[in-house]
Amino acid sequence: MNTHDLRVIANRVRRRDLQAVFEAGAGHIGGELSVTDLLTALYFKIMSVDPANPRAPERDRLVLSKGHTALALYVVLAEKGFIPKDEIATFLKPHSRLNGHPNRTKVPGVETNTGPLGHGLPVGVGMATAAKLNRANWRTFVITGDGEMQEGSNWEAIMSAAQLKLDNLTLIIDHNRLQQGARLADTNDLAPLAPKLAAFGWDVQEIDGHNMDQICAVLDAGQIVTGKPKCIVAHTNKGHGVSFMSDNVAWHHKVPNEEQYNQAMTELKEAAP
């Protein structure tokens, strides 16, 4: 799939996500809009996965460690055919499979349950190690939030991955500079992230996390450096694509009112490639 088509899908995902947040009256719109391009590229260009056989042993693995943005993953999984598209309408409804954080026992395509931040990367290290033990070629991708990188468990896993030479593991940090209640810079600043990961023995690359060409290029298997886990610091904007949400900490989990919803939807439609 070419990057134009990927942008078309990402735009559709953003709109469906926004609609679901509006209708459910809850969600994490800011972080969903910032991670959408990354998820779209992974599922429609980079990863080898089969919706008809979601547990195929040789599949590539994706762990959305910033599990509060599950809705973006649900919409991408629906686009890809893992779950019915109309099931998105049940998001957060009583007894729906689609609760606020992804659940592997309920939702095909989800690899591990996340929600408490700082769980995905250690699990990803285990997955990548299993692939090495199996002499298998599948890759493991983990997406964390940048605020999430404040959890110490991530740094324990970062050390393990380097020690274990997990070049089949890719950590993508959704670096939107905002956490729940404030900017990272005003809370517990981690920037610059790249030299920290490099100091821990990782191969690090920085990209514009909304530029589909850059995302696809950096995630290509040809970019793997033998013996080193890869970290991609994806510079993104929380709320990307909606002018009044973008880079605005108020939109971590705020729900748009009708007027805001209509404006946001109009902006997204106008931006459709």
Partner: peptide
């Protein structure tokens, strides 16, 4: 990182030095 969900904004504004927000940790 729970100033909002713990409703600590008032405490922070009154006693800025005495609110220690360690981040998500």
């Amino acid at each position: 990182d729970s100033v909002g969900s713990s409703k600590l904004a008032g405490f922070r504004d009154k006693f800025p030095e005495r609110l220690i927000n360690v981040g998500i940790a």
